[in-house]
Design a protein around this nucleic acid. Sequence first.
DNA 1: CACTTGACCTGTCCGC
DNA 2: TGCGGACAGGTCAAGT
Length: 326
Amino acid sequence: MPELPEVETVKVGLAKLLPGRMVLGVEHDWDKSFPNTEVDVQAFLIGAKVIAVRRRAKVLMIDLDSSYSLIIHLKMTGQLVYVDDKSKVQSSNIKDQINLKHQNSKTPTSTFHLSSSKLGRFGGGHPGDSLIGELPDRSTRVVLELDGANLFFNDQRKFGWIKLLPTSEVKQLDFFRKFGPEPLSPDFTGEAFARILDRRARSSIKAALIDQTVVAGVGNIYADESLWAARIHPATKTYLVDDISRRRLLHELRKILRLSIEKGGSTDRNYVDAEGKKGSYLHFANVFRRDGRPCVRHPGTRIEKIRVAGRGTHICHRCQKLLFDI
DNA sequence: CACTTGACCTGTCCGC
DNA sequence: TGCGGACAGGTCAAGT
């Protein structure tokens, strides 16, 4: 579940690898993953060079020198993995392995027609670091062919997408304008956070925190972790959370997001960075996916999993007391 | 308008 | 062992 720290980690990785590279071709086998029928892909993508890689909320942007940008949302299970031609698989039996994989797969044979020289391999020398085998695999939806490399967009659940749009239009999209402040932006103050939460006064504080129009980039993992750290019950109505607690929540959220970025993000099931490596933040998590285990602040109390705002939610009921109206 | 629910998808896990 | 159903949760559209 890529949230801010995961998307930031991918951005940092791609920003080292992509700028200066030219796009030579693009292939996809699922239209919703690459919904660009209204755009002249030949004119504005093929032959263009990457200028920069950016992030806003959970969205990645790859700016091209054609004055267009690739806008990418990984949603739940998206991965963007870069494979340079040096990782090319030499062995001739790779074709057989891919064919075997497709025979065993329930899904129809891939429509990709990359030559074997375009196939890449992961995991060599780093057992356990990678979730990725040879690419493309059966979750590969889009392949960007670059000079000297391939960028694979894998997405098991097909929720993610890559759109090609004029760079100047990106910020004008409703989709982008609605995002709230970046939580790590230095000019986003505790006071501003406290006030912006008033817009979701009557919903739960967790629903407010994962609302992208309130603050950008927070999803289920970092909502649960920051609410535990700030000792706020996720189901508390926002208007019952006082200003002191709101400021504490932003403070804890920032600490957690920074730590997670330092650890390369959270790998729960699918997430990997631009080089196919897992993130290690969940080793430092205090509640997320820790239901049934002792709370580190109250070892006699076990972490519970409840449902708040329609999401699985992890709490310590001793740390996080639910406040009621009178 | 504020807020909640269902749909979009596939892989995994659990109970029968 | 197989099979149906619940579950995972980011976002938008539709519903209350």
